[in-house]
């Protein structure tokens, strides 16, 4: 049995500039933020990012690492508009494939199932078709003869996800109310890296349905407590709302200098801790 544990630095050493990278979670919920921060410390850039966007997209956009984004939105949930995503879009900083939430999900399903596309009744009639001139439609071969969007597979070079628990082999468990789409991200990628709050020796007694991700779809496992911070990681912790507000209201250079310029994840976590201590 292969022990797949590694550090965030090991993960980003396996990534290359120009890659297509999928990022799990949803909005400002259970994002693999420690892995994103490791990416920011690396020279990897020119990325195609596939994400139900949150501050993962904001951070990478602010740091100029995104060449192309594939997303239905970018939001901080409690703060509806992601400020760095906004700024980057308004500056024309990257190419965008803007698609509907369901189209996105079927793109993941297609990739996970090694299909070139899946038909979706979403997109036609909307400007998603206008702003994505490469999207094609497909006509049902049955009597209904209906026309659908042929949503292309969102295949990726690498996927980054964060779960509550994992074992050293890459089996992953979520404990919150929503799995999001992290299993699909892993299955849609050539290699997948799973960070978790805690590595466990096994899942004896666990509800079977909580075992979301199979080791067969995972390349590396990173133990990273607080690794989704400042997004939520229920039930381990909720979103760090004061810190998210700080992120959304602080000029990028100042925020990056204070929280992201350290040598590792530990320096980030202690910078956050001292910020909280100063507030109280």
């Amino acid at each position: 049995m292969t022990d797949k544990t590694m550090t965030p630095e090991d993960v980003v050493r396996r990534l290359r500039s120009g890659m297509t990278v999928g990022i799990g979670g949803w909005g400002s919920r259970r994002k693999p933020m420690a892995l994103v921060r490791a990416l920011l410390r690396s020279p990897v850039t020119d990325l195609t990012v596939i994400s139900y966007g949150g501050p993962d997209v904001g951070l990478l956009a602010a740091a100029g690492r995104i060449r192309k984004l594939v997303a239905p939105f970018a939001t901080l949930d409690s703060i509806p508009l992601e400020p760095h995503f906004r700024a980057a879009r308004q500056a024309g900083a990257f190419e965008l494939m803007e698609i509907d939430e369901a189209m996105f999900m079927w793109g993941l399903h297609a990739a996970a199932n090694r299909l070139p596309f899946l038909p979706v009744r979403a997109g036609i009639g909307s400007d998603v078709m206008r702003v994505n001139p490469l999207l094609r439609t497909v006509t049902s071969p049955y009597e209904d003869g209906e026309t659908f969007v042929a949503m292309p597979a969102l295949r990726m070079d690498a996927a980054l996800v964060h779960l509550n628990r994992a074992d050293r082999l890459g089996n992953g468990q979520y404990l919150g109310p929503d799995p999001y789409f992290d299993d699909l991200f892993c299955e849609a990628a050539d290699s997948a890296y799973l960070s978790c709050e805690r590595i466990v020796d096994g899942f004896r007694g666990a509800p079977a349905q909580s075992l979301l991700i199979s080791r067969s779809a995972v390349t590396g496992v990173v133990e990273s407590p607080g690794g989704a911070h400042f997004t939520s990681c229920a039930p381990d912790y909720g979103r760090d709302e004061p810190f998210q507000k700080l992120y959304a209201s602080t000029p990028w250079a100042e925020f990056a200098q204070r929280f992201l310029s350290g040598p590792d994840e530990k320096s980030y976590q202690s910078a956050v801790q001292s910020w909280h201590e100063e507030r109280t």
Partner: peptide, 21 residues
């Protein structure tokens, strides 16, 4: 203009799938 908006908002979210279904 979508190519370079004067104000970027949320994104299409689920509006296309909602309205067709």
């Amino acid at each position: 203009a979508w190519e370079r908006p004067s104000r970027q908002l949320l994104g299409v979210r689920g509006a296309p799938v909602n309205t067709l279904n």
